[in-house]
Design a binder for these strands. Structure first.
Lengths: 254, 254
DNA sequence: CCACCGTCCATTGTGTACAATCGCGCTGTT
DNA sequence: AACAGCGCGATTGTACACAATGGACGGTGG
């Protein structure tokens, strides 16, 4: 339990109050990555003290990071009960996908208008990285990079609120994919990303939007949101036995 | 500086760790309201210690509340420099409005599909409250209630991510209105809200969306985002002198 | 007289101690 | 033996103490 990560402790030991927010960001990014790459399974308890020891920081920092993650929807903060990795229900997944369709359409249209040559080049680079990850068999990194592609696209749309919203949606999408993907197919078609970039570069808005919508369809179809397998959400598992429940799920899983 | 608010201190004094998050919520809500009702002007410094004394809680609580507010975009957190009430630039305002058009359209369509009779009744109640506030001359509460109407509408859309995003957008919108409104006109036409509810109740999606878009136009037209008066953003004030800044201002258009 | 620089002070960033809460196992009773 | 009530341990929630940062102020030199 005493082993700690090196990169965190670039300085002696304690008391390096400086670099405001840097520690937060590091912890946040590490947990975030671990969740999105499915190294942390949904439902896993995230103990503040344990994380503090692992990263070599106090609970204060951990707590801030968890707070941010909860705000993005990848972590569930249960009052007095600690934090766990979120395990989106089917209904939550549907809502996220609905919202994403909406946002992705808008982002695509805006990106066609505003994307600079530099941004397009960066997008191509990201697709390359993504392809590399998949060819290396690093599925987790692939999911993450695929998400980062969509995030980069949002940046090209030049709209801060949309970027922020997209970050949250992409994070949750990655979590959903990790949880519900029907394993056999190669799940993220990076060639669709390439086609999308081509359309954006040609400033063909209609084509780009169509491609994006098809891309969304493909992602959607690769998930089995209808018959969810092996959930730890008892309410969902036995939902067919319940007659009068509210549309929204309590989302409390044990 | 020693005067404190009563409602906060419902119990003896310190150590009431219970009711997890309640104190946070109270502090958060109070600051939030104060900002939206323009009792706190944009740019005002929000000292942690001062707020802590006012609310009778420690800086820990204040810090969390400020963090949440920053996440929603109504407070700006400057590392090592403290928090201030956000003062959205014209460009930021444009981005928020663009995003809102997008989201409001989707919310309206979803609300037409999903709104229950109960929710519609609640919406009518909110419009009443809003009208009362304006007739009382309580402009601040009016702005806030107008925002809460749109938030309630988002709830009727039954999509958690959209609700969360809408909350952020509405907050920022209120701040923008408070900052940029050209003072003479009565600014929020609650009768438009009433018409909107009627359309939703009749399940007339096309009409509802049209009304919502016109509503957005009206809000937009009441702001003078073109000639911003007396900004404290030097970059914006002297932007015409700068040659190599960010690529101009991408016109807000979809 | 103005500009530069070193010191001070106010304020934030972080770690840590302590108190409250929740879940869980134990014991006693029926 | 099963269930209810109760204390206990573990973990989170809060407050506070200390360290570090950044700006302000005043002194000194040009």
């Amino acid at each position: 339990m005493n082993e700690q990560l090196q990169p965190l402790k670039k300085q002696p030991r304690a008391g390096k109050a400086g670099r405001s927010g840097t520690q937060d960001d590091i912890v946040y990014a590490h947990i975030f990555e671990a969740i999105l790459e499915q190294r942390l399974a949904p439902g896993t308890k995230l103990s503040e003290e344990a994380l503090g020891e692992i990263f070599g920081v106090s609970r204060t920092i951990i707590r801030r990071a968890l707070s941010r993650l909860a705000h993005e929807g990848v972590v569930l903060l249960r009052p007095n009960r600690g934090a766990v990795v979120a395990s989106p229900s089917v209904e939550e997944a549907r809502q996220v996908f609905l919202a994403r369709r909406l946002v992705e359409r808008a982002i695509t249209e805006l990106a066609v208008q505003h994307a600079t040559a530099e941004q397009i080049a960066e997008l191509r680079q990201m697709v390359n990285d993504e392809r590399d990850s998949f060819s290396r068999g690093d599925r987790g990194a692939g999911i993450r990079l695929s998400g980062e592609f969509h995030l980069k696209l949002a940046e090209a749309a030049m709209n801060a609120p949309l970027i922020s919203f997209q970050r949250s949606l992409v994070s949750q999408t990655s979590l959903i994919i990790a949880q519900y993907e029907s394993g056999n197919r190669s799940h993220c078609s990076y060639d669709e990303h390439t086609q999308l970039i081509d359309a954006i570069e040609k400033r063909d808005g209609e084509l780009a939007v169509n491609l994006m919508m098809h891309h969304m369809d493909h992602i959607d179809s690769k998930l089995n949101l209808d018959e969810e397998g092996a959930s730890d959400d008892l309410h969902a598992v036995f939902s067919h036995l319940l007659q009068t429940k509210k549309p929204g799920r309590p989302s409390a899983k044990l």
